[in-house]
């Protein structure tokens, strides 16, 4: 079951490379949130009760519902164009995603050299999601897409922390919740304010400060 979910998570990363619509990316975030929720439930015996409730509620409410809803609301309100408008072609993006997977699994195969019992597929997919998030941020110009790239990266980090959940101290769940706070702050305060001040929330617009 966990394997199927992990593979689905990997497929969602591939889908993120070829989708042309912002709505598609939002949908990917919803799917990833749901997958992470089920994965957390499968790990029930590794958490104590309160940690489990906190993490599960956090994934289903924030990752799968609130943040995606919030982003699509921002897209509507700011009348952002519905296309992703990446600065590289889909073909290139898919190709680099394949390379990212190859690299992540290469690192993951080293994981049996460590003392901790890491499951290579879990680690590889989590690591690939982190790199994919970075790639989306680099390869796009819209601020809202940057934010979604950041959230995919966050999902990857969450997946990675699930991989070592049995040994994770409470600090990790604290870290996750801080990240949620941060993403809400970014979206609520800044994207809205930037699109009021600048013509379009686009990183090309943010070029008054340079050397």
């Amino acid at each position: 079951m966990a394997d199927v979910l992990l593979i689905l998570f990997g497929v969602s990363l591939l889908f993120a490379s070829i989708t042309n619509m912002l709505r598609g990316l939002v949908r990917i975030l919803v799917w990833q949130g749901l997958i992470l929720f089920v994965l957390t439930i499968l790990k029930t015996n590794e958490f104590n009760l309160w940690e489990f409730i906190f993490v599960a509620v956090e994934t289903i409410i924030f990752k799968a519902v609130l943040i995606p809803w919030f982003i699509s609301d921002t897209i509507k309100k700011n009348k952002t164009k519905r296309e992703v408008e990446p600065s590289v072609s889909n073909f290139f993006s898919l190709g680099s995603m394949a390379l990212i997977f190859a690299f992540s699994f290469f690192i993951a195969l080293w994981s049996d050299k460590g003392p901790a019992n890491l499951y290579p597929m879990h680690f590889g997919i989590a690591f690939a999601a982190i790199l994919k998030g970075l790639f989306i941020i680099i390869a796009n110009k819209k601020l809202i897409t940057h934010l979604m790239g950041y959230l995919i990266m966050e999902n990857g980090i969450f997946l990675l922390s699930l991989a070592i959940a049995s040994e994770v101290p409470a600090v990790v769940s604290l870290g996750v919740s801080l990240d949620i706070l941060l993403s809400i702050l970014i979206a609520a305060l800044f994207i809205n304010r930037i699109s009021n001040t600048f013509e379009e929330a686009h990183s090309d617009e943010l070029s008054t400060l340079k050397d």
Binding site: L134, L143, L185, I186, F190, I194, T197, L206, T208, L209
Partner: peptide, 15 residues
């Protein structure tokens, strides 16, 4: 300008 600076700061440092 300060809005632009704060956005870059927040986003780059968050990554």
């Amino acid at each position: 300008q300060s809005l632009e600076a704060a956005w870059k700061y927040l986003f780059i440092c968050s990554i």
